[in-house]
Structure formats: structure tokens, C-alpha cells
């Protein structure tokens, strides 16, 4: 792969990933945050492919973005969907 394309792809991935991560932290709706978090993992698994780590990419895609999000959603359903007050406290 051309190095410039590589850098451009990686930059794009990281910008997306950081933007999603900031949204995860800022979102008051925990379910939304969990889904955004799974997006972070999904992009991370693309970065793993860029880094020539297909095994890790597979594990990250299935564990990080699928299972983690699911158990988060289950836990949120057992508790409270919205962050109380958030930053004010």
C-alpha cells in the first residue's frame, strides 16, 4: 500500500475514533453511549487490520464491539438508562 494512502486512512480512522469516544463520554443516554462505544471498537479493529494483525482484528470486532456492547446494554437495562445530572454534580 502506498504510504500516503496508509497515513490518510489511519488519520481518518483515528479522527473518527476519537470523535466517537468523546461522544461516548459526553452522552447522557447510556444506551447510546454503549452503541457509540461499539463503534469505537469496530474502527479499532480496522486499525488492527492496517497494523497487519488480522487475528486481533477478528477478536476485537467480535469481543470488543459485539459482546462488550451487549453486556453493557444488559447492565444498563438492569439499572438506569440516563446519567443522573452528569457533570453538574
Amino acid at each position: 500500500m502506498n504510504e500516503l494512502v496508509f497515513i490518510a486512512l489511519a488519520t481518518l480512522m483515528f479522527i473518527l475514533m476519537i470523535a466517537l469516544a468523546v461522544m461516548v463520554i459526553r452522552s447522557k443516554d447510556l444506551i447510546k453511549a454503549a452503541i457509540l462505544l461499539s463503534g469505537v471498537s469496530l474502527i479499532a479493529s480496522f486499525v488492527f487490520v492496517l497494523l497487519r494483525a488480522p487475528d486481533v482484528a477478528m477478536a476485537e470486532a467480535s469481543i470488543g464491539s459485539a459482546l462488550t456492547a451487549i453486556i453493557l446494554v444488559f447492565a444498563i437495562k438492569k439499572t438506569n438508562r440516563f446519567e443522573e445530572g452528569g457533570e453538574e454534580k
Binding site: 469516544a21 463520554i25 462505544l37 453493557l72 439499572t79 446519567e83
Partner: peptide, 11 residues
Amino acid sequence: NLIKVIMAITI
């Protein structure tokens, strides 16, 4: 919020 903190740790 504990769940939010756990998400932050996942990040």
C-alpha cells in the same frame, strides 16, 4: 456514573 466510568476504562 459507574457505567460511564466502565465505558471510559474500555476506551
